[in-house]
Amino acid sequence: MNTYKPRPKELATEYLESYILENNLKAHDRLPPERELSQMWNLNRVTLRSAIASMEAAGRLYSVQGRGTMVAPRFVRTLQNLESFTKYASHYEAKSETRLLSFSKVECDKHLSQRFQRMLGEKLYRISRLRILDGVPIMIENAFIPCDLAPGLEEHDLVKGSLFAVLERSYGLIMDHGEEKASITAATAEEAEYLEIKPDSPAFWIVSTTRTPDDVVVEYCRTVARVDVVEMSSVLRWDYAGGADHE
């Protein structure tokens, strides 16, 4: 059988990743100086530098002149849950902030009417919010909610409070289950400005539909998220016929 010898740069990357794991380095924690690392791992400094550069390009590390190389902040968004942004931020001990970009009423176009299974022209609230963690704008959420399900929604505070909590408490709408699709888009000039990235740079494009226990579509949401600081996670479970193995 063939054997494969990792190339020096690959190996350098593996050393760096393992260092971060082993020392449980968090966002903004600093790596030891290059000289020290190259001695510790017996790696050529040029190779090490090139591995660091690639990890910077991938959003894993960042460098500040005179301060060294640090672990870049990354926020993991869990696909399969319905928790609020504030609660989400608390996992990171991050300061969360929400800016209401717009709140308006729109009519169902063909696409929206299919999503909601409603007639063309029915009224929807459209709520556009920018989510910020520790001062870093991470995503823009554009939520659509049928006006007749939540009349007077504009009276509620959707900046400090959670939208789903308002829907449950004030309108008795329980957000129970839904589905989500993730793909890539190019940030428009407007999105890029809010997210503080370059126009046309790639962004996550996440579309979700959330329903009540009896399957009424309450919210349809289109999210544009930064890819340099956001990653998404999920747990895949194999569903065997006759039930999963329990040992």
Partner: peptide, 10 residues
């Protein structure tokens, strides 16, 4: 490819 998932209240 796009990635598709379902979610539900825990």
């Amino acid at each position: 490819t796009e990635f598709f998932t379902h979610y539900a209240k825990e």
